[in-house]
Design a protein around this nucleic acid. Structure first.
Length: 481
RNA sequence: GCUCCGGUAGUGUAGUCCGGCCAAUCAUUCCGGCCUUUCGAGCCGAAGACCCGGGUUCAAAUCCCGGCCGGAGCACCA
């Protein structure tokens, strides 16, 4: 048991089997990552098993995306949470049917033909609807009718008997199956009766031998509803931990379906657009899985609704990435600076200030590029140092032809004079485009950046970026400062 | 309307079950200083919280009651 980390799980001595059960209607987000990480962390802690289960039983409102099944597995792998088994609910309808029929026969479930509004009236009044006491045989016939196509969507549902007078209206005779004629992306139109979450998930948790469930407290009623199911079937309910809703300052609230629309409308470049809180996007930006794991474990499993800041994730990531990130010069919005006097034609610069990672050579000479932003801070007569190159005095600042005079190369002099130090770039550097959560920066970088495809570098005085591609132009994804 | 949960510094979090060791932990953030050829890292220091009101008790962040605030469920969504 780690000294720091998650609180112990109740009753974990015997066995721990946990599941992460997403609906694959989009890619994993930061919220999914929490579920994946916490479940896998507990499983690791107790030497248990982790099951990835796709609760994909709504082809209409939360229609699954075929690609998303793979995305979840990919992101689980990346997060070091490889599941021991993968289960897909839409493969297992016959099993659910069998149990449903058993429940009907024992009088624990019935086919209800009320329309939604009518049933709600009965339910709100704590009254049984006329169908509740129908003979099991009659329910069975209707159930067959639902499956065979004699009944249309909305004509009938299968309800689990609970306590119609329960003081919490949310628990009264909930629906377990309904008719859906929309095809399912994975298995087409083979079935026209689909289970609802409380049934599917409750049944699966038992069949899979789940011992511990972690889920959002919005699903608290699920447990109370499923308890009736378990009682009917004589099963023992797993132990449950709830956590509150999680919001992210920088992203506000988002829903998978809203994001999907925005992407289709072209507002984002895709599911890994750096503006999005998806796992794919964070990975592309160079956020490490370990940073996410550490962050999520630190959040714990409190029942309070929380609002987190990306800054904390960034801080975690920076600690991991800083010691291994090559330093590179990148100049945003570059302008040429002509230097009079002696300037080294090339300089050798270490990749890292404190870690020995070797050096790179950067060609220099009498014209270099500096950032327009930096120059805007300067005045004629000001002195500054080009990092690792030379000291300068500004002679002219016309945007088109900024000029300066070289004052030697000694860093000690710059230090004594407390000169500002800025990064620079050779005139024939490589064009770089930085995709940021808040827009796109364009500029030029030292040519060596082309060797860093897939790595996370630190652009000095700019921030950490992941080098995403290196064609004629380098595309980098911004992680954080 | 009915039902259920929660409320510790700006943001998270420990402590709450089993009152005292809590003049409340850690991280992040912010502010100051040091260091550094990066506005990064590192080091040092500082600031900052128990929702409110009653009650029980020698003693309450911790137990009880009431209120306030926030979230959730009452779907043929997950």
């Amino acid at each position: 048991m780690p000294v720091k980390g998650l609180p112990p799980l109740e009753g974990a001595e015997k066995e721990v089997v946990m599941r992460f059960a997403p609906n694959p209607n989009g890619p994993p987000t930061l919220g999914s990552a929490r579920g994946i990480i916490i479940n896998s962390e507990y499983v690791k802690m107790y030497g248990g098993r982790l099951i990835l289960r796709f609760d994909d039983t709504d082809p209409v409102n939360k229609r699954p995306m075929l690609e998303a099944y793979d995305w979840y597995q990919e992101d689980c792998r990346w997060l070091d949470a490889v599941p021991d088994a993968v289960v897909i609910a839409s493969d297992r309808l016959p099993m659910y049917y069998k149990i449903a029929e058993e429940l009907i026969r024992m009088g624990a479930a019935y086919v209800c033909r009320c329309d939604q509004a009518t049933f709600k009236r009965y339910k709100d009044a704590s009254l049984a609807c006329p169908h509740r006491d129908r003979d099991p045989e009659e329910s069975l016939d209707l159930w067959d009718g639902m499956k065979a196509g004699n009944l249309r969507p909305g004509d009938a549902v299968l309800r689990i008997k609970t306590d119609i007078t329960h003081k919490d209206p949310a628990l009264r005779d909930w629906a377990a199956f309904r008719i859906v004629t929309t095809d399912h992306p994975r298995i087409g139109d083979r079935y026209r009766v689909w289970p609802l979450l409380d049934f599917e998930s409750g049944i699966e948790d038992h069949l899979l031998g789940i011992t511990h469930i972690i889920r959002g407290k919005d699903l608290m009623d699920s447990e109370r509803r499923q308890l009736y199911l378990y009682r009917h079937l004589g099963w023992e309910y797993p132990s449950v931990v709830h956590w509150g809703r999680i919001k992210i300052h920088q992203f506000g609230s988002f829903s998978t379906s809203a994001l999907k629309e925005a992407i289709e409308a072209g507002e984002y470049r895709g599911w890994d657009d750096p503006r999005l809180p998806t796992v794919k996007a964070l990975r592309r930006r160079g956020i490490l899985a370990d940073a996410l794991r550490k962050f999520m474990i630190d959040l714990g499993v409190s029942e309070t609704d929380i609002s987190i800041s990306m800054d904390t994730i960034y801080a975690e990531n920076r600690k991991l990435v800083d010691p291994q990130a090559r330093r590179r010069f990148f100049v945003k919005d570059p302008v040429p600076l002509e230097i009079e006097g002696e300037v080294p034609p090339v300089v050798q610069v270490p990749f890292h200030p404190t870690v020995d990672m070797g050096c790179r050579l950067i060609p220099a000479g009498n014209t270099v590029l500096v950032s327009g932003d930096d120059l805007a801070e300067m005045g004629v007569g000001n002195r500054l140092r080009l990092k690792d190159l030379c000291n300068l005095e500004i002679l002219a600042l016309d945007p088109a032809r900024a000029r300066a005079r070289a004052l030697g190369t000694d860093p000690a002099e710059a230090k004594n004079m407390k000169l500002p130090i800025i990064q620079w770039c050779p005139r024939d550097g490589v064009p770089v485009e930085v995709m940021r959560p808040d827009g796109v920066d364009r500029g030029v970088g030292e040519v060596g950046i082309r060797e860093d495809e897939g790595r996370t570098d630190q652009f000095e005085r700019y921030g950490f970026v992941r080098i995403d591609s290196v064609d004629d132009e380098v595309v980098a994804y911004f992680a954080h400062r």
